[in-house]
């Protein structure tokens, strides 16, 4: 089923874009299947792939669920490759290699209440874990999602955020934007402050945080303030990547390579690494 190119891990295989959805002014979702048809490979929530056009390769978190014949990537326009990706149309062929990284602690979180904290495009990786929880609803307790973006327009996956997820059983969704807007009736303020305000009870919970580095730093502090233990605090790290397989040396923090040993770490693990993230 999976035709992961394990024999030649640095050589992509070719996939075709079958749908493109504009999520926000600078985020688009790309749905891809193998150029020959079918799923490129299976992925665990939190794992990533290297997507490429001739201009370059980039690491992106992959969303896929069992039974789906395609993968999804939500990609923010920030530079050379992502700019070109935002220009392409359905039918475009791309290079794809993976899956890379360890993924979220799905098994270890079973039976726990889940607290998901995301900022901006950081909802993309978390979303695969969130979807997994909903699909296996009875494996997880209460689900709390706290998500924020710069503005209403910058909120990703609005349909799920406002229509689908809040209607799931035993689920709370809290959304915030950085600055007030006329039409916005919801919460205003940064994510970490909102977390402290909502003050979720740490008992029986696993928290998973994903977003820009600065948000992660403050959100982790907020969680510690609220009494979360190190092993209840899970996050993802991001660094520039080239190989994705722990060889090119680029993404190390101490002796760990984020591409291979991460990108998901809990605070117990992070505390053993040099503070270079």
């Amino acid at each position: 089923m999976s035709d992961c190119n394990c024999e030649q891990p640095l050589v992509p295989h070719i996939v075709e874009v079958i749908d493109i959805v504009e999520e926000t002014p600078d985020v688009k979702s790309f749905y891809v299947k193998s150029a020959g048809g079918g799923l490129p490979y299976q992925v665990m929530p939190g794992q990533c792939s290297m997507l490429s056009l001739p201009v370059g390769e980039g690491m992106f978190s992959c969303t896929w669920q069992e039974g789906q014949e395609y993968q999804q990537y939500a990609i923010k326009r920030v530079g050379l490759l992502t700019e070109e990706l935002h220009q392409i149309e359905v039918g475009q062929k791309l290079g794809l290699r993976g899956p890379y990284g360890n993924g979220f602690p799905i098994a270890a979180s079973r039976g726990k209440d889940m607290l998901f904290i995301a900022g901006g495009i950081g909802l993309a990786p978390l979303r695969s874990f969130i979807k997994h929880c909903f699909k296996n609803r009875s494996d997880y307790g209460k689900i709390t999602i706290i998500y924020g973006s710069r503005s209403y327009n910058d909120l990703c996956f609005k349909k799920e955020l406002f229509e689908e997820w809040p209607n799931q059983p035993d689920t709370e969704v809290h959304v915030t934007i950085d600055n007030p807007e006329e039409a916005w009736k919801g919460h205003v303020g940064f994510v970490p402050a909102y977390v402290e305000e909502l003050a979720p009870d740490p008992a029986g919970k696993v928290s998973v945080t994903c977003g820009p580095p600065i948000m992660i730093k403050f959100a982790l502090q907020s969680l510690q303030k609220l009494g979360f233990e190190d092993e209840q605090i899970v996050t993802t790290l991001e660094m520039r990547m080239k190989c994705g397989i722990g060889k090119c040396g680029r993404c190390n923090i101490g002796s760990q390579y984020i591409c291979l040993d991460g990108p998901v770490f809990d605070l117990t693990q992070l505390k053993q690494l040099p503070q270079e993230w």
């Binding site: 394990c6 024999e7 030649q8 891990p9 640095l10 050589v11 397989i245 722990g246 060889k247 291979l260």
Partner: peptide, 12 residues
């Protein structure tokens, strides 16, 4: 050790 161990073998 770098290129041939830890999950991936670098084919080149």
């Amino acid at each position: 050790d770098v290129f041939l161990t830890r999950g991936f073998e670098d084919s080149f």
